[in-house]
């Protein structure tokens, strides 16, 4: 999975100073370290990869080794202002349940994922093959990404679960937005960022 620094910048912009944040799949802790240093944010990172855990400790992050597929049982309800999950939703076994869990322990959820509806992905499918792109660089048989979705799919799930979408941004891999992306996000957007909460 890829971590995009510009993407983290947008996420950081959505987070109010002084809040409590839980970062699901925090990697080396870059986002939390940035939030701590610039916005007095406190919180924990959850991560499964041992090498990332060492890096997160080096970055001064309070990291808890956790398999997100096991849920967030260790956290009491409503203990965080934001629960962030960057580029991880598509790699978990039960994305719908994890979204429920995110909005159980947090007031708001911030989620980013690669848009499977991006035109390059569609084009490769039209040509008869699973997409291989910069944001989805894995072969179909060896990929962590087992639950890919489009913007429409994600929004349908939010509607079904009665989650309110507070903010949405669609960008390319370099994290630029453009007029076509704003007009046709599900076709032109490479990466989607959402801020959601329960109704």
């Amino acid at each position: 999975m890829i971590t995009l620094r510009p993407e983290l910048r947008t996420i950081a912009d959505w987070i109010t100073a002084g809040s409590r944040v839980l970062d699901l799949g925090c990697g080396d802790g870059t986002l939390l370290a940035h939030l701590r240093d610039t916005r007095q944010v406190h919180g924990y990172g959850l991560e499964i990869d041992p090498a990332n855990i060492v890096k997160a400790i080096d970055n001064g992050i309070y990291v808890i080794q956790t398999d997100l597929d096991a849920g967030l049982n260790e956290f009491e309800s409503a203990t965080f202002d934001y629960v962030v999950m960057s580029q991880t939703l598509q790699a978990v076994h039960y994305p719908d349940r994890l979204l429920d869990e995110m909005l159980r322990v947090g007031r708001e959820g911030i989620i980013t994922f690669p848009n499977f509806g991006y035109w390059r992905n569609r084009l490769q499918l039209l040509a008869g093959r699973m997409p291989l792109t910069r944001t989805l660089p894995h072969t179909w048989y060896n990929t962590p990404n087992i639950h890919l979705c489009t913007l429409h799919d994600f929004q349908d799930l939010c509607a079904e679960k009665q989650f309110r979408i507070l903010e949405r941004t669609v960008v390319d891999r370099a994290h630029r937005s453009s007029l076509p992306m704003r007009l046709m996000p599900n076709l032109m957007g490479e990466i989607a960022l959402y801020r959601i909460k329960r109704r």
């Binding site: 041992p50 992050i61 990291v63 808890i64 080794q65 260790e74």
Partner: peptide, 20 residues
């Protein structure tokens, strides 16, 4: 993890790793 849970309940500064 029982210990970790109790520390998280208290919002303590805790780091946890499960070594393979």
């Amino acid at each position: 993890r029982e210990i970790v849970k109790a520390l998280l309940d208290n919002r303590k500064k805790v780091t946890y790793a499960e070594i393979e």
